[in-house]
């Protein structure tokens, strides 16, 4: 079996009286592409915050590559190979697109080599994402869609072993979603990454991932083969409140 790269055990996050993430377990191995879906406010982003060390969980445990990083700072998660994107792009606005990608390479990415050295320089990463022609433009001047792609580039610059993607397909057309999904699969295959991909809209993910976990009101209510999960009564129930949740764009 491939190496276990990330293991979340009983992750629990409370904001005052609100339980945002409710004892979630998740294990991801090298080469896996796992989808995480759930209605708005299900706790997906908050769960990612804990997986990337941005937020220490109220309770629970996070093990990255066999090492317990619970309570450690975000840069240690990055240095252990966890890289993420943010749902609302947080690119370095005044730096060029190229420098945005170089940033990860200079810090977290400095410690590792990718399995295949395809992404070892900013230019290659930008080309892969189709951002080659805007390399010199300050990131703040890019369209939101391109900023979202650049977010992926920044994360790839960190040469991750686990890549966390937060709603990277939100707001894209059908064809663009398809292209992004192909891209993610390619990156996963070439670099042997584990990818966890959050999406609010159900249909987007189901066709592309081999495994999907469903969050509902902070708790994980299903985890497994997408076709089976889609027919799971609990999942159908969770999405019922959101008629047409599949089409709706995330907030």
């Amino acid at each position: 079996m491939p190496e276990m790269l990330l293991r979340a055990r009983g992750v629990y996050v409370r904001f005052g009286g609100l339980v945002a993430v409710d004892r979630v377990d998740l294990e991801v191995r090298a080469g896996e592409l796992v989808g995480v879906i759930g209605p708005n406010g299900a706790g997906k982003t908050t769960f990612f915050h804990t997986l990337s060390g941005v937020l220490a969980p109220t309770a629970g445990q996070l093990i990255v590559g066999g090492e317990d990083l619970t309570g450690h700072a975000a840069h240690e998660f990055a240095n252990h190979g966890v890289a993420r994107t943010f749902q609302t792009p947080r690119v370095f606005r005044d730096m060029s697109a190229e420098d945005n990608v170089r940033f990860g390479l200079e810090f977290a990415g400095r410690r590792r080599k990718h399995a295949r050295d395809a992404f070892d320089n900013p230019a290659a990463i930008l080309d892969l994402l189709g951002l080659g022609d805007v390399a010199a433009i300050p990131a703040g001047g890019l369209t939101p869609a391109k900023q979202r792609l650049l977010e992926i580039g920044m994360a790839l610059g960190a040469r991750p072993r686990v890549l966390l993607l937060d709603e990277v397909a939100a707001g894209l057309t059908h064809a663009e979603v398809d292209a992004t999904a192909q891209l993610i699969r390619r990156v996963r295959d070439e670099a042997g990454l584990a990818v966890i991909w959050i999406e609010h809209a159900v249909r987007v993910l189901m066709n592309y991932v081999e495994r999907v976990a469903v969050l509902h009101q902070g708790a994980k209510i299903a985890d497994g083969d997408p076709r089976k999960v889609a027919r799971d009564p609990a999942v159908v129930e969770a999405y019922l409140g959101e008629e047409g949740g599949g089409e709706r764009k995330a907030a």
């Binding site: 060390g53 975000a74 840069h75 998660f77 990055a78 240095n79 890289a83 730096m95 170089r102 810090f107």
Partner: peptide, 25 residues
């Protein structure tokens, strides 16, 4: 230098810089 890049990252978005491996503190 890298150090300067890290400082600039702190100025631009401290948390983002941290998620890319900078020990911001």
């Amino acid at each position: 230098s890298r150090f300067g890049l890290a400082l600039a990252g702190v100025g631009a978005d401290e948390e983002r810089a941290q998620t890319l491996g900078v020990n911001t503190r």
